[in-house]
């Protein structure tokens, strides 16, 4: 019930924040209406960082404690993070075309490292499908999740370390948070959307975690069922009277 309330609250908050960003905040003098895309683009990027951060932390905790619930948290973070990274890239492209004149530029470090981040965590999700053993899968995923997390600070600081098309951070440090280089209304719209996305993120994380736990239980049932069936067959073979066979008659192969 509380999770459902969180979801409803998140949806209402996103609707409210979108309304504020689209209709209340004025258009930017230089960028025009395209500036409004920033509220969903930047908020998506921050949520993606947070999701992958959770995946990395849950991975470390799993390697330490070997608790499969932590692996479910890591999986939830990765899947939700991939979703928000895709939103970040889409929002950036929709903003880039009217403002920069291009949808995408591979020479830009921020864009390229973000695309790499998406590819790394898609790989993480694909890797999880390669193993049926939950413990082995969780260990491999935790290691890959940690390696992929190295890209998160590279994405964030790429605009400071290298020169590219992407502008520097508007609110990237405590000093800029107190004295942002954007008007206060723009910052309020961004923070509202960030708050709304955080509520939705919490809801998605809980639901995806629940799904991972149920999927794991189904896998366990299947494994136990296969072991039981094998044991039944083995016992039946041992208790069968001598001279009788449980096996189906072998058909002679035709030449």
């Amino acid at each position: 019930m509380r999770t459902r309330l969180l979801g409803i609250g998140g949806v209402l908050a996103v609707i409210g924040a979108a309304f504020f960003g689209l209709f209340v905040v004025p258009a930017d003098l230089n960028q025009g209406d395209a500036q409004r895309i920033m509220y969903v683009h930047v908020a998506s990027a921050w949520i993606a960082y947070m999701s992958f951060g959770v995946t990395a932390l849950a991975g470390i905790a799993y390697l330490w404690l070997r608790d499969l619930r932590l692996d479910a948290v890591a999986l939830a973070g990765a899947e939700v993070g991939v979703l928000f990274t895709a939103f970040t890239i889409w929002g950036g492209m929709m903003w880039g075309r009217p403002v920069w004149g291009v949808y995408w530029q591979w020479e830009d470090p921020r864009l390229t490292t973000t695309a790499l981040l998406l590819a790394l965590y898609l790989g993480y999700l694909l890797l999880r499908r390669l193993s049926e053993d939950p413990a082995r899968r969780a260990t491999r995923a935790a290691i890959v999740g940690l390696i992929a997390a190295v890209d998160i600070p590279i994405v964030h600081f790429s605009v400071i370390w290298w020169r590219g098309l992407h502008q520097g951070p508007t609110i990237g440090s405590p000093d800029k948070l107190l004295h942002p280089s954007a008007p206060l209304q723009f910052v309020a719209a961004l923070l509202l959307m960030l708050g709304a996305f955080t509520l939705v993120w919490g809801y998605l994380m809980i639901r995806r975690y629940q799904l991972a736990r149920i999927e794991w239980q189904i896998e366990e049932h299947g494994r136990v069922g296969r072991i039981s069936a094998a044991r039944r067959a083995s016992l039946a073979a041992h208790t069968a009277p001598a001279g009788t066979s449980q096996a189906a008659p072998v058909q002679e192969s035709t030449p």
């Binding site: 996103v14 979108a18 689209l22 209406d33 395209a34 409004r36 895309i37 969903v40 683009h41 998506s44 979703l83 895709a86 939103f87 889409w90 929002g91 929709m94 903003w95 075309r97 009217p98 939705v200």
Partner: peptide
Amino acid sequence: FVLAGYGVILGGL
């Protein structure tokens, strides 16, 4: 572009 941005992101969500 604003409609495409918001539409895909909120619709996708």
